[in-house]
């Protein structure tokens, strides 16, 4: 497998606080890679550096062999990296469909084509019935899926998903796991996700990385990582104990 995303020794400080401390990992094309860690571990900060929102203080990020660290968020997105926000940010006054059309317009100039693509994506995410509703009146699970739909509509090679399952009920979580698996298998989209729900991570991820106070403490296949003593003590605690 070839490396789609290569993060090498990336670090970020906020006024003395080390939020991300020399993190390196590689995401292969076509896989699902998970980043876990307790609140404040630096996961979102790491995402923001990949997505171009923050500039790393050290290290480099390469996407398909080209440096992308320091690019603006829109430039990163145009190269094929789409992200969702942990706290969802739909365009509240626009309809669900128009939200997704805006994503679809990234690589399409024809409105009809963009609209058709948006409807396809909405159908994939079970949002087709709600396409004429304004986004502000959606429920949280629907908003989370809309956030995903919008990112997906940009035809990304790599999807960055920041806690898309947080706040969902177990049935909703299963539904989301299902959707993500379908996106990964059927569209071939590589997924890098931040997740708290261990069940989802175990079900989805081929590889994972554990962050603690900004530093990587374990990396590998999920079933290996959950057995790691450091991980169990620092993060999983009793939850993962057999």
């Amino acid at each position: 497998m070839t490396a789609l995303l290569q993060v090498s020794g990336v670090g970020k400080r906020f006024r003395g606080l080390v939020a991300v401390d020399r993190v390196s990992f590689t995401v292969a094309a076509g896989e699902i890679f998970a980043v876990i860690g307790p609140n404040g571990a630096g996961k979102t900060t790491l995402f923001n550096m990949i997505a171009g929102v923050l500039k790393p203080n050290q290290g480099s990020i390469a996407f398909r062999g080209e440096r992308i660290d320091g690019l603006t968020p829109d430039a990163v997105c145009r190269r094929g990296v789409a992200r969702t926000f942990q706290i969802v940010r739909p365009f509240p006054a626009l309809t669900v469909e128009d939200n997704v059309v805006i994503g679809a317009l990234l690589h399409r100039t024809d409105m009809e084509a963009a609209r058709r693509h948006a409807r396809d994506v909405l159908a994939t995410l079970d949002l087709h019935d709600k396409r004429d509703i304004v986004a502000s009146s959606l429920t949280l699970p629907d908003r989370k899926r809309l956030e995903l739909a919008r990112a997906l509509a940009t035809d990304p090679k790599l999807l960055l998903l920041d806690e898309v399952m947080a706040g969902l009920r177990p049935t909703e979580t299963d539904r989301m796991v299902d959707i993500l698996r379908r996106i990964n298998r059927e569209m071939g989209t590589t997924i890098l996700l931040i997740e708290h729900v261990m069940r989802a991570v175990m079900a989805l991820a081929g590889h994972m990385l554990v962050l603690h106070h900004g530093a990587p403490i374990a990396q590998g296949k999920p079933e290996e990582v959950v057995r790691d003593a450091k991980v169990i003590s620092s993060y999983l605690g009793a939850e993962a104990a057999p």
Binding site: A51, T72, P73, D74, C77, R78, A82, R83, F85, R89, P90, F91, P92, A93, L94, D98, V101, I102, G103, L105, L106, R150, A151, T154
Partner: peptide
């Protein structure tokens, strides 16, 4: 549509490549 996206949420608009 790009304008409306910016009007609604500039950060999200940027994240969608605008």
């Amino acid at each position: 549509h790009q304008w409306m996206a910016i009007r609604e949420d500039e950060t999200a608009a940027r994240a969608l490549g605008i």
